[in-house]
Design a protein around this nucleic acid. Sequence first.
RNA 1: CGGGGCGUAGCGCAGUUUGGUAGCGCACUUGCCUGGGGGGCAAGGGGUCGCAGGUUCAAAUCCUGCCGCUCCGACCA
Length: 583
Amino acid sequence: MRASQFLIATLKESPSDAVVTSHQLMLRAGMIRKLASGLYTWLPLGLRTLRKVEAIIREEMDAANAMEVLMPMVQPSELWEETGRWFQYGGELMRIKDRHNRDFCIGPTAEEVITDLARNELSSYKQLPKNFYQIQTKFRDETRPRFGIMRAREFLMKDAYSFHADQECLNQTYERMHQAYTNIFTRLGLDFRPVDADTGSIGGAKSHEFHVLASSGEDDIAFSDSSDYAANVELAEALAPNFECPAASAELTTLDTPDQHSIEEVSQFLNVDPAQIIKTLIVEGELSEADQKKGIKAPLVALVLRGDHELNELKAEKLDGIASPLAFASEAQILDQLGCKPGSIGPKDLNIEVIVDRSAAVVADFVCGANEDGKHLSGANWQRDITYSRVADIRNVVEGDASPDGQGTLNIKRGIEVGHIFQLGDKYSQALKASVLDENGKARIMQMGCYGIGVSRVVAASIEQNFDERGIIWPKALAPFQISIVQIDAHKSAEVIERSEALYQALRDLNVEVFLDDRDKKTSPGVKFADTELMGFPHRIVMSSRGLKNGIVEYKGRTDEKNDAIELPGDDILDFIKQKLAL
RNA sequence: CGGGGCGUAGCGCAGUUUGGUAGCGCACUUGCCUGGGGGGCAAGGGGUCGCAGGUUCAAAUCCUGCCGCUCCGACCA
């Protein structure tokens, strides 16, 4: 491609609404332009990279025996009503009506459509397993689109769905997909981790998320420093401390703590380490539907944590007796049932169930709320002063915790979720009655797996991991062009033109994606260098009259400090470049 | 959803407090110069100041409503 014919849409300054690196650089390099909130046009440069990601995914999916299909983006409401999701989904589901006033949605995912296909096309266990995938635009009307391509409303996703006669078969495909994903993200040149993940509302079986490690990520990933254990912090188990609760050594005392509510305030006011303070959160208990209908109010439950720990809502709501989704008690409820305001609550003598976190259960001589406004207790101890009904794991793991697999300690880093695989079981196949006949001629509901990759998000995630102050640094696999040839002084040196055109043609003949910067003399060398670096091409050749006079052509890799000289006429330029490009 | 900020040329911004001819930098066009790290000089083109209504002799500026964009938050215990 010639620069003179390409859309070079680089910007010196980045638009003020871009806050993360990938968003800024994608705009500045001229890869994308915003159309509206969460909606982006891919410009020629960006699209080249997007297509590369697609190609790698296709190769690995095909190699794993998945078949590509393409389903409509617009989906009829009937299917969504069959699975119940038409009613469950919130505002994220973009609902539209056609001219006949029939309901449709713009697909945020395609379980309904693929399962409908499967129930119509698959009839025998002999046809299984089958794994279908597509690379298709998805739409989720996010409450808060942000970070550019990273959390856009319209995005490109590879989604795959597998169908099986039994769990064993599903397990095999699941493992095969896990391997395919590992291959894909490795080929994409990303620093990633497969992590144990929450199966969410789908429940049950296995699930792994693939995260690219980057400080701008939206999820916290906990991983062991000495094994391959990795899990979303939401899910990582906080092991029970390996020691018993120390014996009490302090007197129980009531202290005045006027207007000191948060752990931080109490800690400073009393000069006590937050780890010696116990905090008590009040949430709503579980209520049967029958009781709910009778208008019975939900009981309250106290969750007790060490002051320096955070509640893990996911863990808490999974406990028996606690409302799911988790609901914090209102100030009015607390005042009404416990007789004091939040901020002064403690576990002592509460007439409700008290569930204590494993770590909080081994703290002695602690400070906690006194259940009286403006007062806290110090020197409090379990058993002697306060009782509880249950000990459970209800906190988020923190850096330095023991790894749940018993090997090493945990590190925590931010991750960008780029892939997610999970076993759906029969949730959708059951709802849509997708069955095949088994060996005995009996109808059997198929087991399903589903496997997604955020194709457009991968592009942004790669940039988050690979950039410097000059711009993007593409790994070979994603670079829109492998090499640029920068012409300098072309207007007054026929040799520069001759040589660079010859090299351009030679590289094209080798199927190298080469970018010839033949922009006219109004475009200064500095501009050409800056654009090449901003757009992140891995290799650069400079062809100038000065260089040619001295018998050299210059080469520089995107991350190299200095230019390399290719001596003329001795060196063969093409050989040199082929070696650099690893051809 | 809750709270904050911002809408002025393609991009980045000033001007709004205190109403009085709409500006700057980058980008763009033309000419000359320059010619190895985002050039110089000169001359230009480009704006319903987000939209609607109101106050006023006069509104980018003051008032009201709406729309859009954006950031933060959604555990005081």
